[in-house]
């Protein structure tokens, strides 16, 4: 079947199999390999993208179901001139990533959180990241980065 959608501001149309997952469509058909696959049970969140502004695990959605949607991936987060999104910059500034594999999903989830709740506290950040697993960082610096990106002080009591 033929599907069309807007991905990172660009109209794209492709012929796909009915069973094509959105994540495979993005990675393999469009070559947008920033969105990752870390599991097959919809648990890890490495694949989070935005569909019509909402965070979605791209491994659990059929490409065909995104027909006509506005899709944003990690590749679309920085400005056209390369200016990093505040969350991207904060992840670098606060060492919120090590191997980088969970990072695109983390950043996309964090962006969705801050849209919903612009000044989350530590507890709210941790609860919101329920669907994103990071094996490297112990989450400490991810929490700090998200605090910083939301314009809040990052000197958290524990340090």
């Amino acid at each position: 079947m033929k599907i069309s959608m807007t991905v990172n501001g660009k109209e794209v149309a492709r012929e796909v199999e009915d069973r094509r997952l959105l994540v495979d469509y993005l990675r393999q058909d469009l070559g947008l390999t920033g969105t990752h696959v870390g599991c097959d049970t919809s648990q890890c969140g490495a694949c989070v993208v935005h569909v019509d502004g909402e965070p979605v695990k791209a491994c659990t959605m059929l490409a065909a179901d995104a027909e006509g949607a506005q899709v944003k991936t990690i590749e679309g987060m920085a400005g056209k001139d390369g200016t990093l999104h505040a969350i991207q910059a904060a992840f670098q500034e606060h060492h919120g990533l090590q191997c980088g594999f969970c990072t695109p999903g983390m950043i996309m989830s964090a962006a969705a959180l801050l849209k919903e709740n612009p000044k989350p506290n530590e507890h709210e950040i941790r609860e919101y990241l329920d669907g994103n697993i990071c094996r490297c960082t112990g989450y400490h610096n991810i929490v700090k980065a998200i605090m910083a990106a939301s314009g809040q002080p990052v000197a958290i009591a524990a340090e």
Partner: peptide
């Protein structure tokens, strides 16, 4: 990595 340009 933060811009999705890693090459795994």
């Amino acid at each position: 990595f933060i811009t999705g340009r890693g090459q795994y």
